[in-house]
Design a protein around this nucleic acid. Sequence first.
DNA 1: TATTTGAGTGTACGCATGTTCACTCATTTC
DNA 2: GAAATGAGTGAACATGCGTACACTCAAATA
Lengths: 212, 212
Amino acid sequence: MAVIEPVPSESRQAQKERTRQAILAAALELSQTQGFAQISLRQVSRHAGIVPTAFYRHFESMDQLGLALVEQSFSALRRMIRDAQRDPQVFDNIIDAAADVLVEAVKQSKAHFAFVARERVGGSEEVRRAIKHELDLFVSELAVVLARLPNIENWSSDDVQMVSRLFVRNMVSNAEEVVEMPDGRPDLEEQIKEGARRQMRLIVIGFRDWES
Amino acid sequence: MAVIEPVPSESRQAQKERTRQAILAAALELSQTQGFAQISLRQVSRHAGIVPTAFYRHFESMDQLGLALVEQSFSALRRMIRDAQRDPQVFDNIIDAAADVLVEAVKQSKAHFAFVARERVGGSEEVRRAIKHELDLFVSELAVVLARLPNIENWSSDDVQMVSRLFVRNMVSNAEEVVEMPDGRPDLEEQIKEGARRQMRLIVIGFRDWES
DNA sequence: TATTTGAGTGTACGCATGTTCACTCATTTC
DNA sequence: GAAATGAGTGAACATGCGTACACTCAAATA
């Protein structure tokens, strides 16, 4: 229950943004235990340290809050893929790099990934559609990155798109696993990473042999 | 809103079972639009044509109802795999057979698959655990079937288990797709089937090359 | 046939919810 | 410095919820 104390030196706009972030954080935290669809506007407000009516100054409804969380989550995902592209390791070993980046990113933004993994299938119609859209977008973005890689650069764009889809599907599955991972078991992390690596190798090998 | 009229000739036990099934059916139907976790005991009762307090004659709580639905769903899945084993086509072409069976089964018990797909990640702690357990069981059962197949019979049991896990993961993903499939688009069905086939081939080819 | 059983009823309760409205009072604008 | 703005307040409301309790009345049992 983070109460937002007014900081005198802060501008009105900045204060508003702080409250907005407090609401988003409260909703994200509460949705970890019960799922976003079953938490109430009043619960979120209470947790954010505001009165229910003040909620409306920031979001029209819980559904709008959900959409904002989707946006926030995917911007974290995009940051991850942008960072990964800078890493020179990517060029000679996409698979190991991807597994590392995935597990690291999920660990860092665990709550956001958990939110997406859950609401992707369990959320309201609107939130579900938004997540599907973002994931489709992400598949295309990843395909662009993959197409630039050696070994892959001469594949047909249809095949690259399909590999990308399989990679993302795999990412979602593995994110689910990391999210469900109990806290005191870092050994499982390596196991999941190894599993992710094997699966990606499977996809790449299978596709290469497909072509020939 | 199916009202259950008492049928004179029916035994008391049979009547009770009818009501129980009506409750299960009502919950299943309602959970399609909103997700099981966010429907209420009163909604289910209303839909089943009974008064809320009568609900307790059949289930202790909504959570118990959820577990009963999990059980019902997986018995449908088991029927599917049993039928598939009888089909002689399985021996010379597992992949095409599996794709056919999957799409057919999901279409037949669409509501049950949708329930499992959603509640697997979106449901209450208890329901989620039950589904995970059933899915793990199913992976082992499928592994037994796969191990008997030609080409596979000399693989290590670890590898068979892993292939089985990937097949089931794939099954869940494709079930999600069939479930989300709009009603008036039978062309998408063939597309999903073709995708499932390619993915399974990928897994098998990848694994075979892995071994050598 | 008389008694017991138990599936389904109807009322009543306390509680949490989403949304409304008139309000305060610090910050921004003029 | 006076007026306007708008983020946050607090009381009030109608509604739907889970559950308790005393009940009916046909089927099962004796």
